[in-house]
Amino acid sequence: MSVMVAVTDSPEGAHALQVAVGEARHFGTDLVVLNLTLGDLDLSSLPGEPSHVVVERRGRRDPAEVVLDALQEREGSVDRLVIGVRRRSPVGKAVLGSLSQQLLLEVDIPVLAVKLPA
């Protein structure tokens, strides 16, 4: 079994990763890290446990689709998805869409939505 985390290029993304590490440890599972940024993820600070694999984005696809596909590929083996959420302006949502909203509505497994500590 494993915990999956979608890491976006933002403080929320980094925070989601931290929380996901804790979750995976708590359940004693490994961790699937989805890199949704346009760079490389620096995972050198991750502890040795839980063991993790990184899944990279490939091709021009919607990030939500990337997450949904990765889940489908591992159907049955992922029991939790961790995402970082934040307040968005209505305009921002209208123009760029909301990844969090789409994932919360479409993912079949429990989704843990974490906010930055105030």
């Binding site: 976006t8 091709g59 921002g92 760029l96």
Partner: peptide, 17 residues
């Protein structure tokens, strides 16, 4: 070259992009 085709409109949510 395939990798170069990754980014798209959705990435404009990130400030440095």
């Amino acid at each position: 070259e395939k990798e170069a085709q990754t980014g798209g409109w959705s990435d404009l949510g990130t400030r440095w992009v």
